[in-house]
Amino acid sequence: MPVIERTFSDFLRHPNEVVAELDEHDVVLRRRNAPALRLCRADRDVARSEPFDALARLLRNLAMHSPGSISAALSDAYPWVAYLPCEECELFAEELTQELLAAASVGNYAPVAQLVREWQSTAEVYADPELLRRLSEPIEVTHGGPVPYPTG
């Protein structure tokens, strides 16, 4: 699906023109000092989300019935997975497939991106032996007495 870009001002000045373009394209509205907005027809959005739901279910089934295959696929998709220990890689695969299903069920994919960022950060720790050592050390807890109740 081709995407065309218009300014937000174009949309405000010529809304019917921009809406007419939605028959053939999605429209990205660029705004000054603010994130862009994307306009699309609702039926087109549903048409995009249904295959995502199917793919999420397919990956979940693959993870359940052939964990080795999903691990190999994850290594291809995310090269940093090579730094994760095997048990962590399996946990990543399990959490990712669960998150994909959950995201597809509510139409909010931001948690998937967050999960991938968190696992990539975990892989970065495993990739740095000194950092891994420091973060694996026990934390010395000192008790400084009760914490005062916040004021204001």
Results as ranks from 00 to 15, higher is better:
N16V: 06
E50S: 04
V106T: 15
M1H: 10
E118N: 15
C89V: 14
T142I: 06
L91M: 15
R57S: 10
P111M: 13
L59H: 06
E130G: 09
G107F: 09
P148C: 01
S66T: 04
A104Y: 00
V27S: 04
V18E: 11
A110M: 06
I70G: 05
A34L: 11
D53E: 11
L59F: 07
N61D: 13
P85H: 07
A36T: 04
A77C: 01
P2G: 15
R41F: 07
N108V: 07
S71D: 13
L55K: 01
S9K: 07
R38N: 05
L131A: 15
A102N: 08
N108A: 11
R31Y: 00
L115N: 06
D10G: 06
H65M: 13
E124T: 04
H65Y: 06
P51D: 10
P129G: 00
F11S: 05
N108R: 13
F11P: 05
R44N: 05
W80R: 12
E87W: 11
R57V: 03
S9T: 14
V147H: 00
L12R: 14
A72Q: 09
D53P: 00
R31T: 00
N108M: 14
A54S: 06
V141T: 09
A73D: 01
V27E: 11
M64Y: 03
A127G: 04
M64A: 15
V116T: 02
P2Q: 15
Q98G: 12
A63K: 10
W80Q: 14
E140A: 05
S69E: 15
S136W: 01
P35S: 08
A56C: 07
L131Q: 15
A63E: 14
L100V: 05
P138F: 01
C86L: 14
Y149R: 14
L59R: 14
R60H: 12
Y149N: 08
A63R: 12
N108Y: 02
R133Q: 09
V46N: 03
R32T: 03
S75M: 10
I70P: 00
H65G: 12
C40M: 15
V19N: 03
C89Y: 02
V116K: 02
C89I: 06
A42Y: 08
V112F: 01
L135V: 09
D26A: 14
R31Q: 11
P15I: 12
V46D: 07
V19K: 15
A103F: 00
R57M: 01
F52D: 04
P146G: 05
L96F: 08
A36G: 00
V3C: 02
L100N: 05
P148S: 08
R38W: 03
E90K: 14
S69H: 03
L135Q: 13
A63M: 04
A56W: 02
R133H: 07
A113N: 08
N33W: 02
